[in-house]
């Protein structure tokens, strides 16, 4: 039931979540560049990464937004599987964790964008990004694509609901005075 609820919420929220994610990431990307030409358009479940100051026939990158935000499903499933997860400050903790997810998804998309600019636009990339930046953005893209995406659900679940996770595991919690 927890998995079904998580999938249902993800499917309903995704059409709203994806444009907000793309817009927020575009704002962040433009915040520290000049000219402010980073462009992220949403096409269904994908983001189209490009620049407004390049020729219209320049390369664009199509990125799966599902690959970025699917980890919400296992996280929500784990939360909903906890008995009484909403009690106490459970709902507040859920929204705090979702805010961290949103920040991580923004950064994941941002590093996709920056790695695309640094590595895939031929002479323009070479003229604007040195070796250090190319390696940095490629490394950040990898870090957010695999390690962060795969580990965030467990980290935030345990971090947010430690007391309930202990109860779920059946571990005795002894009070020490």
């Amino acid at each position: 039931m927890a998995v079904v609820a998580a999938v249902a919420i993800w499917f309903v929220a995704r059409p709203l979540y994806n444009p907000v994610l793309a817009s927020a990431t575009q704002v962040v990307a433009r915040f520290y560049e000049w000219p402010r030409a980073a462009q992220i358009l949403v096409d269904g479940d994908h983001a189209i990464l490009s620049r407004t100051d390049l020729h219209s026939e320049s390369a664009v990158l199509r990125v799966s937004l599902t690959q970025i935000n699917f980890n919400l499903v296992p996280f929500l499933a784990l939360v909903f599987a906890l008995p009484g997860w909403w009690r106490g400050r459970g709902v507040k903790r859920l929204f705090a964790a979702l805010a961290v997810f949103f920040a991580a998804h923004c950064l994941g998309l941002l590093w996709d964008l920056k790695a695309f600019y640094a590595l895939s636009l031929g002479p323009w990339s070479a003229a604007n990004y040195g070796t250090v930046l190319r390696n940095l953005y490629a490394g950040l893209r990898y870090f957010f694509e695999i390690p962060v995406t795969f580990t965030l659900p467990l980290v935030l679940w345990v971090g947010s609901y430690w007391d309930r996770v202990l109860v779920l595991t059946g571990l005795q919690v002894e009070a020490r005075r």
């Binding site: 799966s64 980890n71 784990l78 795969f150 659900p153 679940w157």
Partner: peptide, 14 residues
Amino acid sequence: HVFIWQSLVILLSV
């Protein structure tokens, strides 16, 4: 590939 099995991989680990 992306949605079902990657989610299951995470859930299995947990």
